[in-house]
Amino acid sequence: MANITVTGASTGSFNMTDEIRDIGNNKYLKVAMSDKSYYARLSTEKPANNNMFVIIDNTKYYVQQNPILFEPVHYEHDYGNFEQRFTVWLPKGRYLVEFNTTNTTTDTFTIPSGLNAMILYSYRRGNSVQLAIGSDGSRIFYKAREAGRHQTWFTLSRQGD
């Protein structure tokens, strides 16, 4: 990950990413270095350790220390038959999967570089609840669990690099 350090009235160091999808749907600051573009994530929230900002359309945006933003994916359903699919961008990093049927389990997986992933969450009466995450025909994560009594859910969250 690229890094930029600014000194002067304010001093700060900010990580940048070369993959624009890593910043989510946020505003960004684009920096070109050696014919390559890097992106810093911007937010209207001021970090405690940061005074670097830009003004876009009369709104002040602060440069964030970490450019990667991944909003957790959470889904829950009762035990009627269902099949739910999500297509998400997974930035590189370590992920935590919480999966609840009769009790909650947690698992982790790591991906070395960002990728588009398909999440498939399904249940058919008489079968297990299944949670599968894959990309381009490869399985990243899979778990099947016996159905509980009331409701099933899962949460996928990014834990860091």
Results as ranks from 00 to 15, higher is better:
Gly126Ile: 00
Glu76Phe: 08
Gln84Trp: 10
Asp136Thr: 08
Thr87Ala: 06
Asp35Ser: 15
Gly148Ser: 02
Asp161Ser: 13
Glu45Lys: 06
Ala48Asn: 07
Gln130Asp: 12
Ser43His: 06
Glu76Asp: 03
Val63Ser: 10
Ser157Pro: 05
Thr87Arg: 12
Ile68Thr: 10
Asn25Ala: 10
Ile4Tyr: 03
Arg158Cys: 06
Tyr62Gln: 02
Gly80Pro: 06
Ile56Arg: 04
Ser13Tyr: 01
Met118Arg: 15
Ser138Cys: 02
Ile55Gln: 02
Ser34Met: 10
Ala9Met: 13
Asn51Val: 00
Ser157Gly: 04
Val54Asn: 09
Asn50Thr: 10
Gln151Glu: 09
Gln151Arg: 13
Pro112Lys: 06
Asp136Val: 03
Thr5His: 06
Val63Asp: 04
Asn49Gly: 01
Thr110Asp: 08
Gln84Thr: 05
Thr155Phe: 09
Phe141Gln: 00
Val6Tyr: 12
Asn66Gly: 04
Asn26Trp: 00
Val88Ile: 13
Asn100Met: 14
Ala40Met: 14
Thr17Phe: 06
Arg158Val: 01
Leu96Trp: 07
Lys60Ser: 06
Met1Gly: 12
Gly8Ile: 00
His150Cys: 04
Asn103Leu: 08
Tyr121Asp: 07
Ser43Gln: 10
Ala9Val: 13
Thr108Met: 05
Trp89Cys: 08
Met52Gln: 11
Leu69Ser: 15
Ala2Pro: 15
Tyr28Gln: 00
Gln159Trp: 10
Ser157Lys: 13
Arg94Val: 15
Leu42Ala: 06
Thr110Asn: 08
Ile20Phe: 11
Gly134Arg: 08
Arg124Ala: 12
Phe82Val: 05
Gln84Arg: 15
Leu120Gly: 05
Tyr39Glu: 14
Asn49Pro: 06
Gln151Val: 05
Gln151Tyr: 00
Gly24Asn: 02
Ala2Glu: 08
Asn15Ala: 14
Lys92Tyr: 12
Asn25Leu: 01
Lys46Val: 03
Thr108Ala: 02
Pro112Gly: 02
Leu29Arg: 05
Phe86Cys: 04
Thr44Gly: 02
Gln64Gly: 12
Pro72Ser: 09
Asn3Phe: 13
Asn58Glu: 13
Asn50Val: 01
His150Asn: 11
Glu146Val: 04
Asn3Lys: 15
Lys36Met: 11
Glu45Tyr: 09
Tyr142Glu: 05
Tyr62Cys: 00
Ala132Phe: 14
Gly114Tyr: 14
Thr105Pro: 11
Ala147Glu: 08
Trp89Arg: 01
Ile20Arg: 15
Thr106Leu: 06
Thr106Gln: 11
Ile4Cys: 11
Phe86Leu: 13
Tyr61Leu: 09
Ser10Leu: 07
His74Val: 07
Ala132Met: 08
Asp161Arg: 11
Gln64Trp: 04
Arg85Gly: 05
Ile133Trp: 01
Ser135Asp: 10
Glu76Trp: 08
Asp22Met: 13
Phe70His: 03
Arg94Gln: 12
Phe70Leu: 12
Asp78Val: 03
Asn127Glu: 04
Arg139His: 01
Glu98Gly: 09
Thr106Ala: 11
Tyr61Met: 01
Phe82Ile: 03
Thr110Cys: 01
